[in-house]
Write a protein that binds this DNA or RNA. Structure first.
Lengths: 189, 189, 189, 189
DNA sequence: CATGAATGAGACTTCATTCAT
DNA sequence: GATGAATGAAGTCTCATTCAT
């Protein structure tokens, strides 16, 4: 039922899709939806909560806490991009949900903040380790996620490797002793 | 009348606001709106066309075609951020419009593409001038705009100077001897 | 439109009649009802306010302020009974409205109180004049109105003259030799 | 289960309360209600039959058949008022039920008639005994019950002693000098 | 230009009732 | 006895749009 809702909402938008549409897509009657969800809004928030991927993002970043950004960022962003690609519908839903009722908005804000914080935490840990220069981690986190999300949502092709490269070479301390990229050290040797 | 429409649509969303709402906010009757606009959708697209700021962005970038990115980017992004701040309502409208009728969508896509292209063109001109390393200008343009737009739209503070610094220091060739990208250096050797 | 509403609500009850029913009876579409009334409840309260007869009752009683109860009461109650008979539909509506939304209830209470007060005021003025014995005017007002209203509403026949006689002279035979009713005495003589 | 139904119906009205509401208040599932009652309407009529107090009223009056009205009426009306107070919910239900389905209506009418008849029978027995003057007993019965019921239902305070006094002795001052009724004085001259 | 009455379609939601378990 | 998933019909209300004035 949530699957059907995701499909329909993603395709038509939350306001654009009727409860009847969702019910039809799920192969049930509208009445049954109200047996399980208090209303349309509750359906949307349930959808967001059940299918959101902020948690997965935090897991990714936390298990890599000790590893270098040059190694972690490409991998995580690729995985994040994969999540976005796999959940393209959900992503569109996220962007469309901006003007829905207050509840939907707060659930969304919560998720965005969670993802932001996970990335910012990780980045700051790399600053503490001396790998990255001191910077505003929030701005960087936003740049990373927003670029990918907007790109995928708007159909603008964004190259993950390019994006990570862009961000990394701005952040890595330029002075000699700590090499910015592992591969370069090796190949440069 | 467009001003009122902007206010109302930004606050309630396009689907969430009725033509009557817009008319009331403009101090006219719904009937009169139909005297000037073919319908609700026409009102939205007119609004986007009249109030959009893609043109202003292109102007900004074209008059600076010859100047260095280190000088131009901070200035342009600051100005772009100012536009976003001044047109917060319009921005929310942009994000909300994603799932509206086809016409609205295409007008939107057009504007985004126009802004993208303006920035990408400029960036490529700086690559040609030798200031910036060769890169995927579209990805960079997306990163720049998306970060600011998402930040402002979602209420996440994004520091413009930080963002520009982030992007610039990844792109500017350090100064010859240490090449920015290992692979290219090697293949170039 | 209010006429149609009165008919329909009186026949089916407020909850039992749909807005569609009312609209159909008025020969318009449901949508138009919402052009004039904020909702079903507003329709009911408007109906009560426009068609209520508490005002007429007060007028009746005020113009008779100086006259004796034995003269006024029969006349007023007869007229009140006439109002009830003429507005039988409205009366049923009054009784049925008890469980509707709060607004309806308060409009109703207001009317009942107004009628009550008008009668109680009059009765007290007759006490002051020495015609009537001192008593709880509210209880009497309630007895007069409630009897008639319940009788008409429930289809129980209530004789107005009997009711007024009852209230004015009571049931207990004065004390045997003097017969309770003057006329009968005379005719019996 | 009937208790819960009484609570819920009295509070929300018969149409205003759903079967689910009743079931929830009774701590059972809607399905179970249908195990015991054929439907919502059957539930209401069962409620009226099980909890109605017309029978109690008849008992009261029959055991007092031989006693004087001046003694019986105050007592019975006080007890009836007590029943109303104790069954305030039921009373509201009675008034609200007026526009329900036909079955409910007929059960109601039956009860009212039963109470009416009991009182009228008693009054007539007192007329036969010579205590009360000849009169329309139905009108008196209606006046007695309706006043109390409407008063309690509408929140208008009705003094039982006053009401009984009113009915028994009337309003007109009995003492000689100020004549109670113009006609009587004149005709009595 | 301007009004606002009028409509028809459709939205969200509720609910009495049934029935497989 | 008891559950609760499931449904179909209906209800209230909104709204883009039209049109006579």
């Amino acid at each position: 039922m949530l699957d059907a809702a995701l499909d329909v909402f993603a395709e038509k938008g939350i306001d654009g899709a009727s409860v009847k549409d969702v019910a039809a897509a799920a192969g049930v009657t509208p009445g049954l939806l109200y047996h399980y969800f208090a209303g349309k809004e509750a359906l949307v928030t349930a959808l967001l909560r059940e299918r959101g991927f902020a948690r997965r993002l935090r897991e990714l970043l936390e298990q890599d806490r000790g590893r270098s950004a040059t190694e972690v960022l490409p991998r995580v962003m690729r995985e994040f991009d994969g999540l976005l690609a796999a959940n393209a519908k959900l992503l569109r839903l996220f962007f469309a949900a901006g003007h829905s009722h207050e509840n939907v908005r707060s659930v969304l804000a919560e998720f965005v903040a969670e993802g932001q914080a996970a990335m910012a935490d990780y980045l700051r840990s790399r600053v503490a380790e001396g790998e990255l220069r001191d910077h505003d981690a929030h701005t960087t986190a936003t740049a990373l996620f927003a670029s990918l999300a907007v790109g995928r949502s708007a159909g603008i092709p964004v190259d993950v490797a390019e994006l990570v490269g862009l961000v990394l070479h701005g952040l890595v301390r330029p002075d000699g002793d700590t090499p910015p990229e592992t591969e370069r050290e090796i190949t440069g040797a």
